[in-house]
């Protein structure tokens, strides 16, 4: 599979995760979100940016439980909970947001 953007093609795996981390830019996230009928708001971007920083620091896409806890620490309790994150990312906050952030699927997600 691949994502087409500005005449360029970006390889993804069968679930739509970007093959090459370095290919990512915000426009790719937008295209991925459009494919899921998801309109990216400020709050969505906050999670995507958080995930990119997390990956940079730990070289890993966090499991949903870890993501929720870490978001709570950084952005406050009203955002660090399953309800808030699932409303933003109904397909699963770790899985869906990691995809838009260009990260691999989180380890431990089956």
């Amino acid at each position: 599979m691949a994502i087409e953007l500005n005449g360029k093609s970006y390889e993804t795996d069968e679930e739509g995760y970007l093959e090459n981390l370095a290919d990512w830019d915000p426009d790719i996230a937008k295209v991925m979100a459009e494919l899921d009928d998801c309109d990216l708001s400020e709050n969505h971007w906050e999670v995507i940016n958080f995930l990119r920083e997390y990956y940079e620091e730990y070289q890993i896409a966090p499991a949903v439980r870890v993501l929720t806890k870490a978001i709570g620490k950084k952005l406050g309790k009203d955002k660090g909970n399953s309800k808030y994150l699932y409303e933003l990312y109904p397909y699963g906050p770790a899985k869906q947001a990691c995809k838009y952030a260009g990260l691999p699927k989180p380890t431990g997600c089956v």
Partner: peptide, 14 residues
């Protein structure tokens, strides 16, 4: 090679 040594620092969160 990926620098996975950084991931050991994440273990506490797991």
């Amino acid at each position: 090679v990926k620098n996975f040594s950084k991931t050991f620092r994440a273990l506490e969160m797991y």
